[in-house]
Amino acid sequence: MIGRTRHVYDAALVGALIASALLFLVPQFFFIRQSLLPNVAPGVVGDTISLDNYREIVADPFYWSVFGRTIGLSAASVAMGLLLAFPTAYLLARMAAPIVRWLIVLLLISSFVSVVVKVLGLSLLLGTDGPVVRTLGALSFGFWNVRLLHNDVGVAIGLVQYTLPLMVMILFGVIQNVPPSLEDAAAVHGASDWRTFRRVLLPLLWPGTLAAALIAFNMNMGAFTSAVLLGGGRVLTVPIMIQRKIVLETDYPNAAALALLLTLTVVAVNLAALKARPAAIAGTRAG
């Protein structure tokens, strides 16, 4: 071969790189620069470079609490999502029936529909007049009046629903790569189901599971639609705060600084998780 063919592929790569670099790096450059400038008046940006916006954010415990809440909600939703996604993906991967095909079609339909439409459905389902709250109330003779909307619970439920299809699909692919004969072998040697799960499945599935968890975590940290609508203005997360800075306060530099800190937080959590388990890096390519 192939010297010439390789040049063709190199040219393809260079083309893709130029297009992507223009999109990935140029807007980000001006954005980071903006975060270093002062906000002189609403919508008016000065031109002295400083770290003042960052200093202001880091010094204010209010911002710390919003970041803490965002991370907490994201992590809790990932945990709940894994608890739901893992058994579902396992059943899908191990069922031989043609029904699996149709279950996957349902999963794809659910992931195809816009988040905003799913959120509309959730708010009908979970609202104070909705079937879930009324059923819980009726079952407990009116003693159990839960609120499932406009609070952290509502936002968490929304985040789980947002990430669940993708988590199931990633885990489904991961579990399919583990031959069922391994589990049979463990069972033949007298391992209990739990022991088989812990000693055989978990070590093999751990990298893919971590990849799924990180992808879901990243989605949750940036989740906007569900947080705004299901939180009903009462739950403040970093993405919502950024939007308010722009729409209500027209404070672009401060919003840019917050956005950069949010991105850095996400990157830091990903690096920390991947460092804890280097083998998982290969798995993130599924994203």
């Binding site: 807007p27 940036g222 956005a259 991105t263 994203g287």
Partner: peptide
């Protein structure tokens, strides 16, 4: 490979703000 995965690390809201300002 990491370069082409970079945007996955950027929260969507941030992308919106970045492009608006750009």
């Amino acid at each position: 490979e990491t370069f082409f995965r970079l945007p996955l690390q950027v929260p969507f809201v941030v992308t919106g703000v970045v492009f608006l300002q750009f």
